[in-house]
Amino acid sequence: MFKRDQHTDNENVAVILDGETTNLPGNMSVAASLLSEGRIVAKISPASKKPCSPHCLMGVCYECLMEIDGVKQQACMVEIQEGMVINRRLGTMEED
């Protein structure tokens, strides 16, 4: 859904995403980093049980809420860091 511009030069960081070590571009928010890799689903809504993706990217909508280092946080407001443990708890949902 998004691609990185050629002139960007963000070094990758290794995080544990949903239990698996994953390399993602650094120096941006967790939400932007995941989107840049085509991972658009941020969580399963606890109310509707349906998948949600980031909507506002400015800390308003809470659609990108995910567990980051043990606490649910807005992925668009947290910079991705080496070693971060990120859980989206997507369950059986498949990502494309």
Binding site: M1, F2, K3, D5, M28, L35, S53, L57
Partner: peptide, 25 residues
């Protein structure tokens, strides 16, 4: 509007500034 893949236009703008991301597709 709550489907994955629907965003604010401002969100796309922010992603461009913050992370150099451009919509594909």
């Amino acid at each position: 509007w709550n489907l994955p893949g629907v965003m604010g236009a401002g969100a796309a703008n922010n992603l461009a500034k913050e992370a150099g991301l451009t919509p594909s597709g």
